[in-house]
């Protein structure tokens, strides 16, 4: 039975429009991705956007599927499974790079002296046991001295009553203690470091020595100020608190005056300046027109009125002798006398 005709018909019916690509489609089967680097045909893109995009997608998808089928397969209970190659595309990092850790005191010292430090392995070879054992910790090699079943007492005049096991353990504990202390100090220094607390520079590496010193001095001043404030933050404003020995004295603001025998010209100039400003202030403070103290201290309006009243009074007197008007004149006369 020849089905080639039917197959050809089926293929013709389902034939997808695969575009011709000048540069082949790149595949990254590890990420199940296909990259079509051929530039987009502007005319096609403008003429019919949707069909063109569809055709592009189809081309890339077909290339990817073809690539997948060319991969080596492995049989499984679900049928053959393609083995994907390792991804070749390098994805950018999601998170920013970690900040450099602050150096410990020893690291700083080693850097300054140019000491190259090789990190010790965690395991050491034990010749007696013929195996690698931990340098410290559980069954650590550092406990050999205290764990031995027999302790040799050297004949060098040392006290035989001293328990060598306890001594060895105490020494080991002291070393641990010292290291814990140093670690704590390193942590504290890193926390108090101006770069971590003040955030003046984003990274420790870029801050110059001067900037670091400056930030440190700022931090120190802040701490000093905080200490002073907290000292007087009691009910008695620190008056009845015990003073601690060796504590720095609180320094107030010192008054500063001009030198006694300084430049006389400048002193004169400043005095004149004060005087000029005094003048403007006086002018501002002076009463408004019509009030007392205007025009050489004479209130002209009042003076004129006074004179008028006096004249009226004189008039009335004259009028009274002649039998003229009286009532109004009397009133005005009283006003004039005040």
């Amino acid at each position: 039975m020849d089905v080639s005709q039917q197959l050809a018909d089926y293929a013709a019916a389902n034939a997808a429009e695969v575009l011709e690509r000048p540069t082949p489609v790149e595949l990254d089967t590890g990420l199940l991705a296909a990259y079509d680097t051929t530039p987009v045909d502007a005319d096609e893109y403008k003429a019919a956007l949707e069909p063109h995009l569809l055709a592009l997608t189809l081309t890339s998808t077909q290339a990817l599927l073809a690539g997948l089928f060319s991969l080596p397969t492995k049989s499984s209970e679900h049928g053959p499974v393609a083995q994907l190659a390792d991804p070749t595309f390098v994805l950018p990092r999601e998170k920013p790079l970690p900040k450099p850790k602050p150096l410990t005191k020893w690291e700083r010292f080693a850097n300054a002296k140019g000491i190259s430090h090789v990190k010790k392995d965690k395991k050491v070879w034990d010749d007696e046991r013929q195996e690698w054992v931990a340098r410290w910790g559980r069954d650590g090699k550092n406990k050999d001295a205290e764990d031995q079943w027999l302790h040799e007492v050297k004949n060098n005049g040392s006290d035989p009553t001293i328990d060598p096991r306890a001594t060895a353990k105490a020494e080991r504990k002291a070393r641990t203690e010292k290291n814990a202390k140093q670690h704590a100090r390193n942590l504290a220094e890193a926390a108090a470091s101006p770069l971590s607390t003040l955030d003046r520079k984003p990274t420790a590496g870029t801050a110059s020595q001067g900037e670091k010193a400056n930030a440190r001095s700022i931090r120190k001043a802040e701490l000093d100020r905080g200490m002073l404030v907290s000292k007087v933050s009691t009910a008695s404003l620190g008056r009845f608190d015990k003073s601690i020995e060796g504590e720095p004295r609180v320094k107030g603001i010192k008054r500063k005056f001009e030198t006694n025998l300084g430049d006389h010209a400048s002193e004169k100039a400043s005095a004149m300046d004060v005087l000029n400003r005094l003048g403007t202030a006086e002018r501002k403070r002076a009463p408004k027109k019509g009030g007392s103290g205007v025009e050489g201290g004479v209130n002209t309006r009042k003076a004129v009125r006074y004179e008028e009243r006096a004249a009226q009074l004189a008039n009335r007197r004259d009028g009274k002798s002649g039998g003229g008007r009286g009532g109004r004149g009397g009133k005005s006369g009283r006003g004039g006398r005040k």
């Binding site: 030198t259 002193e267 400043s270 005095a271 004060v274």
Partner: peptide
């Protein structure tokens, strides 16, 4: 000592 500015102002 010379007068400060405030003192000068008060005197003047």
């Amino acid at each position: 000592r010379p007068l400060t500015e405030d003192e000068t102002k008060a005197v003047f």
